[in-house]
């Protein structure tokens, strides 16, 4: 028994090494910009770079648009399917899982062919149109995670009773969805939102192919042109990812807490 546990720790520590060393490596590297001593020069350099600010803000904006749009699309759909069209659930679920099957590069390819300037829907004809298309692409990328999160959240509450109670009190459909259903699946929606954010913020393929000044292409560009800044950016991205996951944990735990206390 004792030696088995020793082996467990040994295997575990080996795993930890593999996952920790690259993190240490990138952090150490990001501090090396000034010759002969550790400094945060790489971070200053990145943060004061106008292009960093522009691309990061652009991706941030796209992420927020994708989150809002995704919520508005997924919550009512998942609700409606559970309430009125349970027969359609397998179909809808299948469609929401398709983005895991179809590689993003293929989706982007399809956009370019389908929405070019000479097509019926020339999204790519204007900058604004391209931005809309990009955020729709992000909604598609996040769809599997968003839908699953919301659907799980809906399963946990009795939507039929809630709906009938709200109808009995004279609520119309928008009121039911936004004032009754939505607050009850808020935690699930927030989890989906943070996951969307983590996926979208560094996204490369679609934004590069649609030729938009997003954070992902900027990362690639800086990776081939600078030495220490990429590591600084990687550290920051890792922190953002970690933050998103931590926030998911926090909201989940918070909700559990409030549920038991009611």
């Amino acid at each position: 028994m004792k030696s088995a546990r020793l082996w467990s720790y040994l295997i575990f520590l080996t795993g930890v090494m593999y996952f920790i060393i690259p993190l240490i490596g990138m952090f150490e590297f990001s501090l090396r910009k000034r010759r002969g001593e550790y400094s945060f020069d790489a971070y200053t350099s990145v943060l004061t770079d106008a292009q960093f600010q522009q691309t990061f803000l652009y991706s941030l904006l796209m992420a927020l648009v994708a989150i809002v749009f995704g919520i508005l699309l997924v919550v009512p759909t998942a609700y409606w399917v559970r309430l009125r069209l349970p027969k359609m659930r397998p179909v809808v679920e299948f469609v929401t899982l398709l983005p895991l099957v179809i590689p993003p590069v293929v989706i982007a390819f399809g956009y370019i062919r389908l929405f070019n300037t000479s097509s019926v829907l020339p999204f790519l004809g204007s900058q604004f149109g391209t931005d809309v298309l990009l955020s729709c692409g992000y909604v598609v990328l996040a769809l599997p995670y968003m839908y699953r999160a919301v659907d799980t959240g809906l399963r946990a509450i009795d939507i039929l009773t809630l709906t009938e109670a709200a109808q009995g009190l004279g609520a119309n459909w928008p009121a039911i969805i936004f004032r009754v259903i939505f607050p009850n699946v808020l935690v699930a929606v927030l989890s989906g939102a943070f996951l969307t954010f983590a996926i979208v913020i560094g996204e490369y393929v679609i934004s590069a192919l649609l030729d938009r000044p997003a954070f992902g292409p900027y990362l690639v560009w800086i990776g081939s042109n600078k030495a220490y800044e990429p590591s600084a950016l990687a550290v920051m991205t890792f922190a953002v990812t970690w933050g998103c996951m931590a926030l998911i944990q926090v909201v989940t735990r918070f909700s559990k807490h409030t549920r038991t206390s009611i």
Binding site: M26, G202, Y204, L219, A234
Partner: peptide, 23 residues
């Protein structure tokens, strides 16, 4: 966290660790 830490930043981390001048 790690399963979502893919893409460009991940390759930076590995270059900084196991690249020619990685730690």
């Amino acid at each position: 966290v790690a399963s979502n830490f893919a893409g460009v930043p991940l390759s930076f981390a590995f270059i900084a660790t196991l690249g020619r001048v990685g730690i």
